[in-house]
């Protein structure tokens, strides 16, 4: 079953430092070719750890139903 929430990374603001990939408990985030963070939505559990640590504040937690 999918979680209620998931993380979304703004590729325009991401500085691709990679700290989100380190804190993610599900290994759901990767840095696409050094350009920006990409969240695998189906793996994300919406815990918000990446949002809390992101220095550029480019990650937001979204509701799945809202889309």
């Amino acid at each position: 079953m999918l979680s209620k929430r998931y993380a979304y990374a703004d590729s325009g603001r991401c500085v691709s430092c990679g700290v989100c990939t380190k804190v993610c408990p599900m290994n759901a985030i990767s840095i696409f070719k050094g350009c920006f963070a990409v969240v695998k939505e189906e793996l994300c559990i919406g815990c918000g750890k990446c949002q809390k640590i992101c220095p550029a504040a480019c990650i937001t937690i979204k509701e799945r139903g809202a889309l």
Binding site: V15, S16, C17, V19, F32, K33, G34, C35, I53, C54, P55, A56
Partner: peptide, 29 residues
């Protein structure tokens, strides 16, 4: 004052390497 890795968000090396990566991957982006 802010997040632990706030320096990374404006680190000149990080900006430079990200720019290089974006140029290299511009077609896919």
């Amino acid at each position: 004052f802010y997040k632990p890795r706030t320096w990374c968000s404006f680190c000149p090396m990080g900006t430079m390497t990200q720019a290089i990566c974006k140029i290299k991957a511009h077609k896919e982006i």
